[in-house]
Design a protein around this nucleic acid. Structure first.
Lengths: 346, 346
DNA sequence: CCACGGAATGACAGCGCTGTCATCCGATAA
DNA sequence: TTATCGGATGACAGCGCTGTCATTCCGTGG
């Protein structure tokens, strides 16, 4: 019956380039596999043949279909990237580092933004994993059980970035935020500060900021000191939040001689607040940040802070993954360290 | 011969989840297609069956293979995104907007960063197109001929962002930078400024900054004015570059009463320079930016600038594409406009 | 009691590539 | 001259899904 003829006449009806390898092969007068070889630059193909193939590719405007290629070869060149936010330049830096590390390797990042929500993260990881990426790069250690299971079970490489204060699923690249907090305290204590204030953000969701705070408080305790006052906002970090946080702190009781901020964005807000209130930076009130953002260093008085090597973190993660594409037996942790930036505000 | 047995015993050897639809189907005691239907939530599946399938999915830890799915259905849910840079918060905002617009639709962005190099862009577009994305989102109008051809020929939707001063391949979403430059000039002239200076960046590569400059100069000319001096750097925009640019300008001959910067990053640098040199903002020297970044608005004296709606540009582009996934007959241009932000520096 | 329609399910081919092996051929060695 | 070998090319199945029918089953109305 007629149905027999009608069945299965599917075609790449959906837009895109309807030109396939087969078309190119026919035009070039070779087999599909030869075209494939030329395009992937594998195996030996005679110079003349190659030229004919490339010519055919050129005038058909053929574009490879990586989807088919990936399915056939079971080797994708996508890398899943999961970050909490892009409002914060810090993660844009990480993403830059990832892209930079990927470079001309042909690998492409597929990104997802969680908004710091582990449930969203779970959904994202699921849909990224569905693309059978060559690797997954994800910020932080805080995942749902399902997420963690998926990540473990997919035997691709998994890099958890920014933080190294926990055991990774496979590879961790970052710095110890606790150590950074401690270093901050020791540095400031050594410079003679005694009355410490703190202005924070996202108190309940930003684990790394919390770790820094813990390190700070702990090292202060070891020096026989404690925070004289603090303002712990629960909103996201921003310059404005920093201004308001410092303003509130200063309206409070005991006046600190140095205020540590949860990060540079906040600290820059603090600097602006001092400018607005005519408080002499460092002499009257010292300020200290975290991250080492450009903006802080471009201030009339460069911000005293701790440099985290964000770009490098992304880049290093990628380099590491590309150099060992198979997951190994042992967990790895790469410490990218941090440096105190003396600056002029503390 | 033995070879006959050996051939074609390929397997998803490469890591990832070795669990396939077929496995889940077997365990659930249904056919593959039924599992597929449950997972995609299409067609009707009996409640009991669905439950069994989901259970099987659950305990196998099955993860869909979108690669195979995309190949079979010829409908991808990847969106190619090509931006010039991530160092500039502006493009991070656009990317945020894109991600936000994509929301829970299941579409995922695959990103590429060109570094403002059309050749890199060409390579990127080629490799993104190879993933047969549902759409391409790209910043600007400046493409190589090859890029343009590929984009046209792939009949997917193509959104060119930020700029609307040229004819798009398919859809343009952004603002008229020329108009923004003109508005800046008129606004400042109306406020009584007469001696205009200009500090710019990336003079040879940032077409949109150039368009704003042209609009500015043109509208000044219409008011019988001209720039009294300018500093056109060729490096990327940064706060530091803005500081140095203004410093250089002020060391120059005629002192302007207002300086327009190519963007807010640069202008914030200008503000810092004034703070450092103790120049009274607005009264002694007025400054004006472009973009309306948070940082500028958090300054002790909020920066006078023009707000570009970057997040909205990304979001709108996505919304538009999702609502009409097929390319139409006619070219479309969506003007997201801009607003003068009065601020306190001009 | 039977025809009928719709819900639930399945069979099957094929999406566009690539891995694997086989084949062909001319150049070199014996 | 003949056996040998490596370079160049091809045939073929299959990667893991989904679109397209086809089929089965059950409740309903005449």
């Amino acid at each position: 019956m007629l149905a027999e003829q009608k069945r299965h006449r599917r075609r790449a009806t959906q837009g895109n380039s309807p030109v396939t390898l087969a078309d190119v092969a026919r035009i070039a007068g070779v087999s599909e596999i030869t075209v494939s070889r030329v395009l992937r630059d594998v195996a030996s193909v005679a110079a003349g043949t190659r030229k004919r193939v490339l010519a055919a590719v050129g005038d058909t405007g053929y574009v490879r279909n990586q989807v088919a290629g990936t399915l056939a070869s079971a080797t994708s060149n996508l890398v899943g990237v999961v970050i909490p936010s892009l409002s914060n330049i810090v993660f844009a830096d990480v993403l830059r580092g990832i892209d930079g590390g990927l470079g001309p390797s042909g690998y492409r990042p597929v990104v997802g933004i969680t908004g710091y929500d582990p449930t969203v993260e779970e959904t994202l990881v699921g849909s990224l994993l569905a693309w059978k990426p060559a690797a997954m790069i994800i910020v932080g250690f805080e995942h749902t059980d399902v997420t963690r299971r998926w990540l473990k079970q997919s035997s691709i490489r998994v890099a958890e970035l920014m933080d190294i204060d926990s055991a990774p699923i496979d590879l961790a690249v970052g710095l110890s935020h606790r150590a950074a907090g401690q270093a901050t305290a020791r540095h400031l204590v050594a410079r003679g500060y005694r009355r410490f204030g703190y202005v924070g953000h996202d108190w309940n969701t930003d684990r790394r900021a919390r770790l820094r705070w813990e390190g700070l408080v702990q090292a202060l305790a070891e020096a026989g000191l404690a925070l004289v006052d603090q303002r712990l906002n629960d909103g996201p970090s921003s310059t404005q939040a920093g201004r308001e946080g410092l303003a509130a702190l200063l309206r409070g009781g005991e006046r600190p001689d140095v205020v540590v901020f949860s990060n540079d964005d906040m600290a820059v807000g603090g600097v602006f607040q001092c400018l607005a209130e005519n408080i002499a930076l460092k002499h009257e009130l010292a300020l200290f940040g975290f991250n080492g953002l450009d903006i802080g260093q471009a201030l009339p008085m460069p911000l005293s802070t701790v440099r985290s090597n964000r770009f490098r973190i992304g880049e290093l993660a990628v380099e590491h993954i590309l150099s060992r594409p198979k997951r190994g037996e042992t967990l790895e942790t790469i410490d990218t360290g941090f440096e105190i930036v003396e600056g002029a505000t503390a």
